[in-house]
Design a protein around this nucleic acid. Structure first.
Lengths: 340, 340
DNA sequence: TATAATTTCGAAAACGTTTGCGTATTTCTT
DNA sequence: AAGAAATACGCAAACGTTTTCGAAATTATA
C-alpha cells in the first residue's frame, strides 16, 4: 500500500524478466532501445519507484550521509548544513541530521547508532564536552569515512576543515588592544576542544605581543545555560579589576555578555568592548552592533560535501587523507569595539 | 569491511540457526534464557550490529522520519526541529532533513524523492511559493502519513499544527494602534499560503475595529532577497503618506525593516513602530529591542513527533485525523513599539 | 553456407533480516 | 508409565533489488 509496485510486478506486467527490467531502468547497454522505452513508459504509468532498502542491501551503500552538529540554533552550523546540502542534493544523497546539544553522552549514543552502516559517511563537529573520543575511534576503525569541521578531533587521522583560528583571534585581539583595551577577557565553552585552544593561543599571543600581562581569571570557561553564563559574566564584570574587553569564542557568549552588561548598566563599547566569533546575520542590528569574526560556513559545508561525494562516487578512491584544511575567517568591525 | 559481521556469521560462530539468533536478539519467548545470554554476549564480543536495510526491507519500515522545512537559518524552524528530535530520538527514529529554501521546484523534487518509502512519515512546512500542491497530493495518496505545521496545506486531509495566527495578529495590531499607530503596514512573503492569509485577516480586523481605513498598498508582498526587501521597504517608507507601523509576518522582514529605517535615519519606535513574528533569542538585544510574537516552536515539534510516533509504533492506528490543532503564540512587548 | 560474433534477454543467486511452520526434546498430566 | 502439553530450536521462504552466467536469436564473417 504505502510502498507501491515492485520491480518484479512491473516485469510481470511487461512479460519480461526482472533482470531485464532492472537493466532497462539502469540504462544498461545490454538492453535494446525499444524495450528500454517500453519499460520506462510502463514504469512511469504504474508509478514505479525502486525500493531504496533493497538497493542498499544489495549494493551495500545507502546514498545517505549523516551530519552531527552540536546545536541547530546557531547560524554557523545552519549555514554549514545548507552548504553541505547544496552539494549532496545534486548527487542524490540524503542527509541524516543529528544534534548533540553539546552533550557527550548524546554524541556517543548517536555515533553508536551509525555503527551499522545506515550512513555511507559522516561529517561532524564534536561537542564542546567531548574529551573521551573512543566512540569516534570505533567509528573510524569500522572504515566509515568521517570528516570533521570546526570542532575537529585531532586524534582521528582523516580530513578536517577549520578556519584560521589562531590568526583571526590574534588579529581580533590586536584590534581590541588597538581600540584601547588594557585587560581583555577570553570566553569559551570548554578548554578541551581544539579550536578553543587555538583561539586562546591567538588571544594570548596578541597580549604578549602588546606586553600585557594576562590574568588567568580572565580566561573564563562558561557553560550551556544562558542564565548561568550571565551570572558568571556579571560577576566577572563586577570585579574591581574587571575586564574592559571581551573576546567571545562562541556567539552565545557574546550575547550573554550583552545581557550582563545591560544588567550592570555598563556601556558597550564605552566601558566594555565586545568581539565575537559569530555568523549571525543581524550582528549589525544589535545594540550596539557587534564586531564579529565571520567564518566561511557555507564554503566549509560545500567543501566537506565535495570531498565526501568524490570519495563515495568515484571507484577506488583512497581513504580521506589525514590533513587539516584551513579556510580563512573575516573580521567585521562594528560599533561594539569602537574607541571612545 | 565497513559493514561488520552478519547475523548469519554470528549464528555460525555460535553453532545456532540464524532464526534462533534473530529470536534471541529480539528477546523472543521461544528462546531459553541460557542461549539468550550466550547469543547476547557473543554479539557483544563480535561487535554485531543488525543491518538496518535488511530489516527495513523485511519489515517494510525504515524507522526514519523526513522533515521538510523552508529554511534552516530561522530560529522557529530550528526550534521545531529540536522539538521533533527530542521525541523521535527516544523511540529510535532517525531524521532525514531537507530544506526547500522557499523554492517550489526544490520542494517538488524533495517530495518526489520520498515517494519510494525511504521515510515512514513526513512532517513539513510548505514553502511560501507553494500554490500548486499536486506533489503533496501524490504523497498523501501513496498512504504516507504526512503532518503539516505552521505553513499548512489545507487541501490535504491530515493533522496540522498551527498557532492562533488570527488572534495573535489581531492583538499585535491592536497593540500597534494603542501605541499610536495610524497607518500600520503588513509585510508578508506570499499571499498564497494559509498562515499569511490568517495573519492578514487578523491585521485587517484590528484596523476595522479601530475604524482605520486600510491602504491596500500597505499590505506588501516581499521576497527572499534581503537587498530587494530593503529597497521595497525603503520605497514604502519614503512615501509622503508612509506607514508609521509595521507588522512583519516573518522574522526576516522585520530585520529588513530595521535596515531600511537605519538607511533612512528613521527612528524606531519614534517614527516607526515594528512588531514581528519571530523566535529570535536575541530580539531583546536589537537596537531597539524588537517586540515579537513568539511561536511555541519546540512544543509544536514535540506534538508533531508524538502523534507520528503513536501512529507508527502502535498497531492498527487509524489515519491521522483531518484536524487543525492550535497552540497559542505569545506577544512579548519590547522597545520597538513603545509610544513616545 | 557454415561458423563466428554480436545482440538481447532470462534463470538464479545473493545481500541480511524476520517469521511461519515443523520437530525433537523435555516436562507435566492422570 | 503412557500420552499430552510445553519448551527450544531449525528449515526455508520472503522482502526487492542487482549481477553473474548462460543461452537463445540475430547479424556479420569467411
Amino acid at each position: 500500500m504505502v510502498s507501491g509496485i515492485s520491480l518484479k510486478e512491473l516485469a510481470a506486467e511487461l512479460n519480461l524478466a526482472p533482470s531485464t527490467v532492472s537493466r532497462a531502468l539502469n540504462d544498461s547497454y545490454e538492453i535494446s532501445e525499444q524495450t528500454k522505452k517500453r519499460v520506462l513508459s510502463m514504469a512511469e504509468k504504474l508509478n514505479y519507484h525502486p525500493n531504496p532498502f533493497a538497493r542498499s542491501l544489495r549494493e551495500n551503500k545507502s546514498k545517505t550521509i549523516a551530519v552531527i552538529i552540536p546545536e541547530r540554533i546557531n547560524n554557523f552550523f545552519a549555514q554549514v548544513m545548507d552548504g553541505i546540502e547544496s552539494i549532496t542534493q545534486e548527487h542524490g544523497y540524503h542527509l541524516l541530521v543529528y544534534s548533540t546539544h553539546e552533550d557527550l553522552e548524546k554524541e556517543k549514543k548517536i555515533v553508536n547508532l551509525l555503527l551499522n552502516g545506515r550512513a555511507d559517511a559522516i561529517v561532524m563537529s564534536i561537542s564542546s564536552q567531548t574529551s573521551d573520543i573512543s566512540h569516534l575511534k570505533k567509528l573510524y576503525d569500522r572504515g566509515l569515512p568521517i570528516l570533521f569541521f570546526d570542532r575537529i578531533c585531532s586524534e582521528i587521522p582523516t580530513t578536517k576543515f577549520i578556519t584560521n583560528d589562531f590568526q583571526s583571534t590574534l588579529e581580533a585581539t590586536r584590534h581590541l588592544i588597538q581600540q584601547g583595551c588594557k585587560r581583555p577577557a577570553f570566553l569559551m565553552l570548554s578548554e578541551d576542544i581544539s579550536i578553543t585552544k587555538e583561539r586562546h593561543r591567538g588571544f594570548l599571543a596578541a597580549l604578549k605581543e602588546a606586553g600585557i600581562e594576562h590574568n588567568p581569571a580572565f580566561s573564563k570557561v562558561c557553560c550551556q545555560k544562558e542564565e548561568t553564563n550571565i551570572e558568571i559574566l556579571t560577576e566577572l564584570l563586577s570585579r574591581a579589576d574587571r575586564p574592559d574587553g571581551i573576546l567571545a569564542s562562541v556567539e552565545k557568549l557574546a550575547l550573554a555578555s550583552y545581557h550582563a552588561a545591560k544588567k550592570l548598566k555598563m556601556r558597550i563599547p564605552g566601558e566594555l568592548k565586545v568581539i565575537s566569533f559569530s555568523n549571525m546575520g543581524i550582528a549589525g542590528l544589535l545594540n550596539p552592533s557587534l564586531t564579529t569574526i565571520i567564518q566561511p560556513a557555507c564554503t566549509i559545508g560545500e567543501e566537506c560535501a565535495k570531498i565526501l561525494i568524490k570519495k563515495l562516487t568515484k571507484p577506488n578512491q583512497p581513504d580521506l587523507p589525514n590533513e587539516v584544511i584551513t579556510i580563512p575567517s573575516k573580521l567585521i568591525i562594528r560599533e561594539s569595539t569602537l574607541a571612545e
